[in-house]
Design a protein around this nucleic acid. Structure first.
Lengths: 365, 365
DNA sequence: TCAATTGCTGAATCGCTTA
DNA sequence: ATAAGCGATTCAGCAATTG
C-alpha cells in the first residue's frame, strides 16, 4: 500500500508548476527518467571584488546576490556535482541537458558533466550584440556566454530538429555561434520599484532556439534554476510542458504572474530575431593579421606619398601615426578621409586600392 | 662547481630553437621563471585514444565501456595537470598562458588551469569564417574553438597591449569573439605527397593577435606542442624570441624549414600604439610652478562652477580644498573624477581644458 | 624585515534601447 | 532626432603605513 502510494505519487509529475525549494531535494523527489529536457542557468560563482564605475562615474549594477556566493572552487564543484546527479536521474534515457555559463564556472560545469557520464554534443556560443565594455581597458570585452548541450549518455538518441533550426537560420545550417541581443525592453521584468526583477534574465530568443531545436511538442522541459521563468514561458508558448524549481519567493512570484500571462503559440514567440545585415565591418588590422599586407610595407596615395604599415594596423606617414583614415586626412589637410579608397598597395607592378582586400575578406564571411 | 655548472646551464635558455622530446620533460629541464608567454594547442582527448600515455609513460588502452571512459578522462586530466605544472614553473611571475581547444577537452583544461592557480583573464572564441559543415545534420555546425587566456596568478601584472588591439580593430575595444578564417591556401603546409602536413595547423592571424596583444618585442614565447611551428613563425615575424617543443620528427622537419624562410618585420613596424597610462606623470602643481596658471586664477567646470588655484597646486571651491580630482569629485558627488579633463581655464576668451597644458609639458619632456 | 593593508592619484566605454 | 541609460565584471597602480 505504502509502496503503491509512493509509486503512484512518484508517477504524478507536477507539470506546469513552479516548485518551491532547493533544486537538488526537489529533483530527487520527482520520478526518475521522466523529463525530456533540462535547461539550467546555475549560479556563475563570479567572485566580484569591489564596485565598478563607468568612465562617466555611473555605478555598474553588478550581480552581488547571496545565491552567487561560494567559498571556493571545491564548494562550487560539490554543488555542481550534486545538482547534475539529481538532474541526470530525472532525465529520460534519450533526454538532453543544456547548461549556460561564463568562464568563471563553465569549465568546471563542463568537466562535471563529462565526469557524470553526460555526452557533450556541442558547445554553443551566445554572442551578445550589446555587451558591457571593459571599462578599464585591461581585458577583452566579455562579449559572449557559453552553453553546453549534452545527451544523457554516449549513443543516446537525442532530439535534434535539424530542419527547423535550418529554417530559423534562413535556410543555412545552424552554427555553434548564435548572435542574439541581451534581454531588455518590455521583455525585461521589473519589480515594484521599477528595478530589474532578476539580475540575469535570459532572452526568450535564446530559449526559443534551444526548445525548438531539442524538444518536440508535448515534451516536458525542466528548469532547476527557474528565476523569472523564461524557460517556462517559452516552453508554454511552444506547446511544451514545463516544470520550474526556484527557492527565492520573490522570483517565484514574478514567474507565476508571467506564466499566467503567457498564451501558447503566442505570435510573438514565433518571431525570430533577424539581424539587420549591413555590410560587415572589416577592421584594417585584419589585413595585417591575415598577411595580406606585411608590417613594414609601404602604402601609396594618389599623389605618390607613402605611409608605412605597422603590426597593429596603424600607419606612419608624414610624421603622423594613426588609422588609415587619420593619416589620409592629415596628408590631405581634410577633416576626414576614407582610407579604404585613398590608400593603395603594389602587387605585380600594379597599384591597387586596399579596398579590394577588404572586399576579399567580406566575400569569405 | 657542480652548482655553478647547473646554474650556468639553467641560465642558458635555448631560444629560437625547436627542442626534441616530450614537452613535460623538456620544460622541466629549462630554467624556471624564464618565459613570458606560453601558447599551447594540446592534443584533444578523443584523438589520444590509443596513444595516450600516463605521466609514468605507461600507455592507456583505448577502451569503449562505461568505466574505462572515466579512466580515460582521468588519464587526460593527469596529463593536463602535468604539462600545466611544468608550464607554470617556466613562466615568469607576470607571464601568461593561452590554451586552445574544443568541447572535447577545453572544459577539463580550463578547470585544471584554475586548480593549478592560474587566473583566467578571458575566454576567447575563435569564430571560424569558413568552418566544416556538419554533414550528417545531427548537431550544430562546429563553427568555433575556445581559447583561454590566463595569468600565472591572481593579481599578476600581465601584459595587455590594449591600444594596439584597439588599433587592430579600427579604434574599437577588442571583444572576446574573433572572426578569423581557418588555415588554408598557401599558408597551409603540405607534405611531400601534397597532403596537409599537420591535421590542425592554426592560422597565423590567430597567433598574430595573441602575440601582439600579450607580449612585447624581445619577449620569449614558448609553444610546448609546436606542430608545424605557427607560433614560432609569427613570433619571429613580430620580433619576439621563441622556443618550440615537438616530439614528432616529421613536424619538426616541416617547422624547421618554415622558420628558416620567415623574416622578421622591420623594427619600426613593430612599434605599436601605447596607452596614455604609460605617459609620464605630470603633477598639477607644475602648471603653477611654470607659470602656466597663476595662483588666484579661477578654473571652471562644464556647469560654470568655479574653483581657485592656490600656490601649492591645490584648488579651493564649494568650501572644499584639495586636488583637482578631489574638488571635481566633490562638486559632482562622484566617487572619483579626472580633474585634467574636468577643469578648464580661460585664454583669449576661450575655455580650454587644463589637460592641454599637461600635454604641452609632456611634449617638452 | 616584510607581507598585508590603507589611501591617494587619476585613467577609463560600446552599442543598442528607451525616453 | 537627440540624449540618457545600461549590460553575469573575477576591470589600477603605487607609495606609505601598519602589524
Amino acid at each position: 500500500m505504502t509502496t503503491m502510494t509512493r509509486a503512484k505519487s512518484a508517477a504524478a509529475l507536477p507539470i506546469n508548476q513552479i516548485l518551491d525549494g532547493d533544486c537538488i531535494q526537489v529533483m530527487n523527489s520527482l520520478p526518475e527518467a521522466s523529463v525530456d529536457l533540462i535547461f539550467a542557468d546555475p549560479p556563475y560563482n563570479l567572485q566580484l571584488k569591489g564596485e565598478l564605475h563607468r568612465p562617466d562615474n555611473s555605478r555598474v549594477d553588478a550581480v552581488d546576490d547571496h545565491w552567487d556566493q561560494f567559498s571556493n572552487f571545491a564548494a562550487y564543484d560539490a554543488f555542481t556535482q550534486d545538482w547534475l546527479r539529481a538532474a541526470r536521474r530525472l532525465l529520460k534515457p534519450d533526454g538532453a541537458i543544456w547548461v549556460i555559463g561564463s568562464y568563471h564556472n563553465i569549465f568546471r560545469v563542463g568537466a562535471a558533466l563529462q565526469d557524470a557520464g553526460f555526452w557533450i554534443l556541442n558547445d554553443v556560443i551566445w554572442r551578445k550584440a550589446n555587451p558591457m565594455p571593459n571599462f578599464r581597458g585591461k581585458r577583452f570585452t566579455n562579449a559572449h556566454e557559453t552553453m553546453i548541450w549534452a545527451s544523457k549518455s554516449e549513443g543516446a538518441k537525442y532530439t535534434f530538429n535539424y530542419e527547423a533550426l535550418k529554417s530559423l537560420n534562413e535556410g543555412i545550417q545552424m552554427r555553434s555561434d548564435w548572435v542574439l541581443p541581451i534581454c531588455n525592453g518590455g521583455e525585461r521584468l521589473k519589480d515594484a520599484n521599477g528595478d530589474k526583477a532578476h539580475p540575469t534574465q535570459k532572452p526568450q530568443s535564446l530559449l526559443h532556439r534551444v526548445i525548438v531545436g531539442s524538444t518536440n511538442p508535448g515534451d516536458v522541459v525542466l528548469d532547476p534554476f527557474f528565476g523569472t521563468g523564461t524557460t517556462g514561458a517559452v516552453a508554454k508558448m511552444l506547446g511544451r510542458d514545463w516544470i520550474g524549481i526556484e527557492r527565492e519567493a520573490a522570483y517565484r512570484e514574478v514567474a507565476l504572474k508571467r506564466l499566467g500571462d503567457v498564451r501558447a503559440f503566442d505570435k510573438g514567440a514565433l518571431e525570430v530575431s533577424t539581424s539587420k545585415r549591413a555590410e560587415p565591418r572589416v577592421p584594417f588590422g585584419q589585413l595585417v593579421e591575415r598577411g595580406m599586407l606585411r608590417p613594414g610595407e609601404m602604402l601609396i596615395n594618389g599623389r605618390g606619398q607613402m605611409a608605412k604599415v605597422r603590426a597593429d594596423g596603424t600607419l606612419v606617414g608624414d610624421g603622423v601615426t594613426g588609422s588609415i583614415h587619420q593619416v589620409g586626412a592629415k596628408l590631405e589637410g581634410a577633416p576626414s578621409c576614407n582610407g579604404w579608397t585613398y590608400w593603395h598597395f603594389r602587387r605585380d607592378g600594379k597599384t591597387v586600392p586596399i579596398d579590394v582586400l577588404r572586399q576579399q575578406i567580406r566575400s569569405e564571411m
